[in-house]
Amino acid sequence: MDKTTIICRCEEINCEEIEEAIGHDARTFDDIKRLTRCGMGPCQAKICISLVADVIHEQTGSHLHEIPLPRMRMPISPIKLETLATNSTTFSSVKSVMDEVELEEGKVR
């Protein structure tokens, strides 16, 4: 693939940057995300997920089933903070980040 081809439309990460991350031993989508911001824009990897897997496959020879899925966090699609923070009712903790922070009575532990 042409090196200048954009892979992540949102964060505008091109093929060369993905390959460079793979050169630094990135082997999963999340590895590449941490090194490049690929997949961290508004679409949250919905478009680039399969394109990145293809690049990893091409570069490393890993089979597609050996390249795990990225984390898919809450919220699943963009939502206004006003809606999420102000107008949410009677909820328990947010599950998607429970192993990182525990939200309890408004405090972050």
């Binding site: 505008e12 824009g41 478009i47 699609s77």
Partner: peptide, 20 residues
């Protein structure tokens, strides 16, 4: 326009997924 490279963007997926 895109945020970093200031390139044009328009409709892409029409499914509410890509945010373009």
């Amino acid at each position: 326009l895109s945020r970093k490279l200031v390139q044009s963007r328009g409709l892409f997926c029409s499914r509410g997924r890509c945010c373009s």
